[in-house]
């Protein structure tokens, strides 16, 4: 059995150990609490500017880095494989007979083979009127004839309708923001072809070449703006005459 003095020493030691354990536990929990508090009260604003390299580091990084590519790849919204497009168009004709103003109303038919190629037909029915100069010369001639004076009858020939077969090639594509209502894809195309044109003097061959923009507004609704050069030979009383016209048309179409 221990003496009172030994027991006192053992008790003191035990108290010291307990006290040490309490202090150790308290300091550890205090540190953990502080870390948790710091974490909870994180202030990244002061740390965020430590990110980023100096210019020399960035330069060296650029030198070492490969050329990686990222592109936007979208499917064509409107499938144009073996689809038939029919449209109505309105056009203005520039050039041709200097005394005649010509407009056209017509239709177009295109068979899309794939998004890059189509074959089609352009039909135009022409309406003609005299220009102000044409009106003047006709009036002068009429007046001279009425007065029994010599006059020169103005020579005019004008188109009535034309039908041309065309091949279209669509090498360039793009898309339009349609007034923030949606996005419409389009193709810029080239066309060329030949056919027949019926003039006041008779029928003759014609050829055409040009380009346009085809806008694919939905799976079935299309629009085209086309400008094409069309050439033919007309007949006036002095002989055949080469005519070079530019036809600009706007059309609305339907894709079957």
């Amino acid at each position: 059995m221990n003496s009172p003095k030994v027991r006192s020493l053992q008790l003191t030691k035990a108290l010291l150990y307990i006290g040490y354990a309490v202090v150790l536990t308290w300091s550890l929990s205090s540190a953990a609490a502080q870390q948790a508090t710091e974490s909870e009260n994180a202030n990244p604003k002061s740390k965020i500017d430590t990110l980023g390299g100096n210019p020399e580091l960035v330069r060296r990084a650029k030198y070492l880095s490969p050329t990686n590519k990222t592109e936007i790849v979208q499917k064509r919204e409107v499938d144009r494989h073996w689809r038939l497009e029919m449209g109505l168009n309105y056009g203005l004709v520039g050039g041709g007979d200097p005394y005649i103003n010509t407009q056209s109303v017509g239709g177009n038919l295109d068979l899309h083979i794939n998004p890059h190629w189509s074959v089609g037909v352009r039909y135009a029915n022409f309406t003609n009127s005299l220009t102000s100069e044409g009106t003047r010369v006709f009036n002068d001639a009429s007046n001279s004839a009425a007065l029994g004076q010599p006059y020169t009858q103005p020579a005019v020939d004008y188109p009535k309708n034309s039908t041309v077969g065309v091949i279209n090639f669509y090498p360039i594509y793009g898309k339009l923001n349609m007034f923030d209502l949606g996005v419409a894809q389009f193709d810029i195309y080239l066309l060329g072809g030949a056919g027949q044109i019926v003039l006041n003097s008779g029928s003759t061959s014609t050829w055409t070449a040009g380009g346009g923009i085809g806008l694919w507004m939905s799976q079935h609704l299309t629009s085209r703006f086309e400008v094409r050069y069309q050439s033919y030979t007309d007949q006036i009383y002095s002989g055949p005459r080469n005519e070079n016209t530019v036809i600009s048309t706007l059309s609305i179409g339907f894709l079957l």
Binding site: E71, I72, N114, Y173, V183
Partner: peptide, 15 residues
């Protein structure tokens, strides 16, 4: 021919 490719730039279209 069935896809359309565009360059990535600062302008982002929703589609």
């Amino acid at each position: 021919s069935d896809v359309m490719k565009f360059k990535v730039n600062d302008e982002v279209w929703l589609d």
